[in-house]
Nucleic acid binder design. Sequence first.
DNA 1: TATTTTTCTTAAACTAGTTTATTTTTTTAC
DNA 2: GTAAAAAAATAAACTAGTTTAAGAAAAATA
Lengths: 171, 171
Amino acid sequence: MEEEREEITRFFRKSTFRKKTMIMKAGEANTLHYYIEKGLLRMYIIDQSGKEFNILFARERQWIGDLGTPAETPYFIETLENSTVYSISEDNFHILYKRYISLANYIRKSYVFLQKRFVSILSKTAEENYEELVNEHPELIQRLPQYQISSYLGVTPVFLSKILAKRSKKD
Amino acid sequence: MEEEREEITRFFRKSTFRKKTMIMKAGEANTLHYYIEKGLLRMYIIDQSGKEFNILFARERQWIGDLGTPAETPYFIETLENSTVYSISEDNFHILYKRYISLANYIRKSYVFLQKRFVSILSKTAEENYEELVNEHPELIQRLPQYQISSYLGVTPVFLSKILAKRSKKD
DNA sequence: TATTTTTCTTAAACTAGTTTATTTTTTTAC
DNA sequence: GTAAAAAAATAAACTAGTTTAAGAAAAATA
């Protein structure tokens, strides 16, 4: 187990980035996978009209990256806090998850998570999705500015603000 | 390679189902994974208000199933055509993707596909999403009734019909 | 081929969420 | 601690998509 960890570690390169650093950019190919030691990052797209949509937040002990690599990525990744991450190339990433089932399981879990999120966005109102986020990841609400959350929920900052106004009247 | 195929085949059980058969039901645990030899199936949810949302269509040489198993599944799977499928338990599925990277890769590809679909639904209009579906999977349009497609696009049948009316005026 | 059932269309009133603009509040930097 | 910048709130007019309902067309079945 300790050996395994050591061997795995050899594949990675440690880096630290200041808040608001872009570490992956749409159009790049052969992008890296990142394992987060400390900090908070987001993966997002920018649509034709220039609007941003957050696909994913990732924090301590989570992964972030485009699993579609080595193809040209359509995604951006940016640090939202000062962050320390371990990066790994696609080739080495592939070697690892061939060898260690835990990594293949991470991909599977990511899928299940995304599917759940997809269903929520599709079938629930923005208000319900906000409630769910508060209940399941209250810490994210603390760490993120409101407009990042609205982009994650697929609505405008203006609309999220309305939801919150309505919500605080109730209490 | 031929050996591998044979060994893999041993884990599966072949079944055929008539059109409109439900082969997985929300609330069940330890659900099976299905590999499709012939036919067309859908995975969907039913929300609080009773509305259905199609998560996924799967056809020949594709997989369908809840990767969240053995937990209680929130999904339904139904055949849309007479179908022949190979089913496998979670335990055996796990053994296989531990042993054969191709199966782990299928999960990864599914993730990439879902992420793309998620981004489209989030950032594009229903009309754009319909165009995309027509371009990328024209055969699905042929095989599916319109109301199944609307559910896949996350809109009502009424609205899809409007889109099509507008669309045919253009030509 | 007539009948029944399923699917699709159209219309009209409605609602969830957007857009643009202005003001207020909070955070950051010197 | 003050100025500047960033984030959040509010308002009003707008649009993408929903709901309900009724009729038309197409497909399935006897």
